[in-house]
Design a protein around this nucleic acid. Structure first.
Length: 547
RNA sequence: GCGCCUGUAGCUCAGUAGGAUAGAGCAACUGCCUUCUAAGCAGUGGGUCAGGGGUUCGAAUCCCUUCAGGCGCGCCA
């Protein structure tokens, strides 16, 4: 719909002698009475052409008038050009939608370009919490969205299975293990304290007995570290499975060290003179690329920082020649962006190669009161608990009705209480309802194959035309969501479409004795179902056959 | 102190890359199930877009500033 109009406007602009065509702004007017689509192009050209907007609009309109798909062209307000399509055009486009389904709905914006999206990447030192859930829902939906738009998308989870935190995890479990066997052993300072630490220790006692009793940590540590993080990682994978999120690749940090990629990355930067020694430490010259200060990569004690492996990790990613890299981070890591972009540039790539999408913090509430969370103290509500309490679809939907950069209050009581009237069910119910209509139609003997040949011109009710127009706007919403990397636009569209379908259902009976009309209406339902399915699939939310 | 994000209806949030009369859900109130699913429908009320300046044909949106909240500013991750 938008594409056709843009083509017409461009052609008309040329006719009135404008060849340098600016990016055309086409949108939906504030009121349906104004028309189907609208453009302020006459106003934006006014200064350039030194003519009043209305005059330009008049000239454009007279060129556009000869187009047969346009029913009406109105010039309104300060110079808006409002256009209304003919019914014939709407029916023809609806027919295309019915015939080609997602091909019609999804603009091929990616053209096969390769994108990698890295998200969640929570340390395997404890279970996932709600913040990871938000990052997960967002990353997964964005991946689905870009894939639907013709990108070749890979989802990656980066596993921080090396370094200090993971050792601290092993020590925490080790201390519990000794304690369970009656040996007094000090828990590490700043160690992990959740109940899951004790559980893992129990498991080790059960499996290994007293093999490691009264050993020193540096004798037994490797076993405890490995066992613990692998256990936690498999728990994370189960949680992700319950949340309906999958990854294509899992990159281990440890492996980056073992394969020598970390040292190669450092040597690479050193050879470019972006790495130097100072005060018994090794530094990366981040200030050469606009960061506030240089950053340590090898500490005085000879240990690497987390940043060191991140350099190697991003080097590895960038050398895989993706067209675009997207990292999704919690907003508390925002200060880290200049540093990692400095790495990208130091490696000889434009910093735009990596896009970091920040997802804001989630405040978890129960009945309006904040739930205190501290990972190390072991006090937190896990993602799994939230999924079990309010449901995966509802949880995802709540995340996907917000912009990523909005601070989110997630009230467990509200999410649960609204459950029966939650907008997610409103959308899913529309889908289930349509299935039910089709089941009923089949009982009445209206065959599905006849629906595709329905006489769509019988869809003449005001409600029906509104719905058709809404359906035809989907590609436009889709395109906007893809370009802005904003899946939530799809969510809002889904709600709007559903809010047209339900009243229609109540007002106009779909299956009646009038076979021809029934077929036409079923065809419309089929189109709605197609769009709902497409949108829900992108959001990663289930489309239930019945409810 | 500096940096990033946020401030829109009682609550939770949208507002399409500056466009027309600022929207939705929830909550509140009134009606509707012998007909394809009432997780639905029809209707009512609800606003100093945090405050103040500026940019221009036009600002919730861009710039400056004040206020409020969140998060960062490690040889932690």
């Amino acid at each position: 719909m938008k594409k056709d109009l843009v083509a017409i406007i461009e052609e008309s602009l040329k006719k009135i002698g404008i060849n340098a065509i600016p990016p055309l702004d086409v949108g939906v007017p504030p009121s349906e009475d104004f028309g189907d689509l609208s453009t302020p192009v006459a106003m934006s050209l006014s200064k350039l052409l030194k003519k009043p907007p209305k005059k330009i609009a008049d000239e454009l309109a007279s060129c556009m008038l000869e187009k047969t798909i346009l029913e009406r062209i109105d010039i309104a307000g300060p110079g808006f050009i409002n256009i209304t399509f003919t019914k014939e055009y709407l029916y023809a486009e609806l027919k295309k939608l019915l015939e080609s389904g997602s091909v019609f709905l999804r603009e091929n914006i990616g053209q096969g370009r390769r994108v990698q999206i890295e998200f969640i990447s929570a340390n395997p030192t404890g279970p996932l919490h709600l913040g990871h859930g938000r990052g997960g829902a967002t990353g997964d939906a964005l991946a689905n969205l870009l894939k639907a738009a013709g990108y070749h998308v890979e989802r990656e989870y980066y596993i921080n299975d090396a370094g200090k935190q993971i050792r601290l995890l092993g020590q925490s479990v080790f201390a519990w293990y000794q304690k369970l066997l009656g040996v007094e052993y000090p828990a590490p300072e700043e160690g992990y304290k959740g109940g899951y630490i004790e559980e893992i220790a129990h498991e080790i006692v059960f499996k290994m007995g007293s093999t490691y009793i009264q050993k020193r940590f540096d004798e037994a540590g490797e076993f405890f570290i490995e066992y613990s993080y692998k256990k936690i990682l498999s728990g994370i994978k189960e949680d992700l499975n319950a949340f309906g999120i999958t990854f294509d690749t899992w990159q281990s940090e440890k492996e980056l060290f073992e394969s020598g990629e970390v040292s190669r990355a450092i040597e690479d930067l050193r050879s470019k003179e972006f790495v130097y020694e100072k005060e018994q430490a090794t530094w990366f010259r981040a200030t050469a690329f606009g960061d506030d200060k240089d950053r340590v990569i090898i500490k005085q004690d000879g240990e690497n920082t987390y940043f060191t492996s991140d350099i190697a990790y991003h080097r590895k990613k960038i050398e895989k020649k993706y067209d675009e890299l997207i990292d999704i981070w919690g907003a508390d890591h925002h200060g880290y962006i200049p540093r990692i972009q400095a790495v990208i540039e130091a490696l000889g790539y434009p910093k735009e190669k990596l896009k970091v999408l920040l997802v804001q913090m989630v405040t978890l509430l129960r009945g309006g009161k904040p739930v205190q969370m501290s990972k190390r103290a072991g006090e937190f509500v896990t993602l799994r608990e939230v999924i079990e309490e309010v449901g995966a679809d509802t949880t995802k939907f709540i995340f996907l009705t917000r912009r990523p950069d909005s601070h989110l209050e997630f009230d467990l009581e509200v999410a649960k209480a609204q459950s029966s009237e939650n907008p997610v069910f409103y959308v899913q119910y529309a889908y289930a309802r349509i299935n039910s209509i089709f089941a009923h139609a089949q009982e009445k003997g209206i065959q599905a194959d006849k629906i595709s040949h329905a006489d769509l011109s019988l869809l003449s009710h005001h409600e029906e035309l509104r719905i058709i127009k809404k359906l035809l706007m989907y590609p436009m919403i889709f395109e906007g969501a893809v370009k802005a990397h904003e899946p939530h636009r799809i969510t809002f569209y889904m709600q709007e479409l559903s809010s047209m379908f339900h009243p229609y259902y109540n007002k106009c009976r779909i299956v009646t004795d009038d076979i021809a009309l029934s077929r036409a209406r079923l065809a419309l339902c089929e189109a709605i179902r197609t769009v709902l399915r497409d949108g829900l699939e992108i959001l990663g939310i289930s489309a239930p056959e019945r409810m």
